[in-house]
Computed example of a mutant assay.
Amino acid sequence: MKLLRKKRVLLVLFIALVTVLFFNSSWMGRWIYPIHYKDVIVKHAKKFEVDPLLIAAIIRVESNYKLSSESRKGALGLMQVMPNTASWVIEKGKFDTVTMDEVKHEAEPNIQIGAWYIKSLLTKFDNNTYVALAAYNAGPSVVAKWLQNDTWDGKFENVKKIPYGETKNYVQRVVYYYNKYKDLYQNELS
């Protein structure tokens, strides 16, 4: 009986140790929260002066790194850029060689377009990441109206005041993944 009790105690201790290692290990976190296309993300993040971890978090929420994703609303690729937005970015950013087919099916042009667009939103909204994320999801003119009529003040602690449930959830999810990525990849991708 004593031997059986000792084995149970050892089993419980072993399970506790494995659990602690599982939840506190960097390799496990990287397995659960991977970042694909790191080189492309870093390249365009540096080019447009955007945090690469923010771009990675947007991609995670938008497409979960599925290259040729297309939403029900028609958003394209890894960063789920709407076709009209992609066309506007191609024109404004002078990306004359980028085609819509490339935006939909290739990582590099999609990330380039998305990184340029998030930088333009950050610039438009005084580098307020939460507002830029809301605008990335709901559109800049809609978010500008929310700010103008005091529907939302642009602060994360007041994100519950965002009137679109999808956008509120989107901002919260991107911030969640951004913080996870910061914990796991800060020194690697910065």
Rank of each mutant, 00 (worst) to 15 (best):
V143A: 14
D101H: 08
H105L: 12
P109G: 03
L121W: 03
A86F: 11
T129I: 15
D126L: 02
L78F: 05
V89H: 12
A132I: 12
G139P: 05
A115H: 08
N84T: 13
D126M: 02
I113M: 00
A75C: 11
Q112N: 10
V103H: 02
T97W: 05
A132N: 12
A75K: 11
S120M: 08
E91V: 03
A115C: 12
N128C: 02
N137S: 12
K104T: 06
L76S: 01
A135C: 09
K94N: 15
T99N: 12
F125V: 09
A134K: 00
V143M: 13
N84M: 09
L133D: 01
N128P: 03
T99C: 09
Y130N: 15
R72Q: 08
S120V: 05
P83L: 02
M79D: 07
V142P: 02
K124E: 15
G139D: 09
I111A: 12
P83N: 03
N128F: 01
A132G: 12
G74E: 09
D101C: 03
G114A: 09
M100Q: 13
G114P: 09
K124W: 05
T99L: 11
K104G: 03
S87R: 00
K119E: 05
N137T: 08
I90E: 02
N110D: 11
S141L: 13
G114E: 04
E102A: 14
Q80F: 01
K124Q: 15
N110V: 05
A107V: 09
Q112W: 00
N84V: 10
Q80K: 07
V143S: 14
V89L: 13
F95Y: 15
D101K: 10
I113Q: 00
A75V: 11
V103K: 02
T99R: 10
N127R: 02
S120L: 06
T99Q: 13
A115Q: 07
I113N: 00
G139F: 09
K92H: 04
G74A: 08
K124T: 15
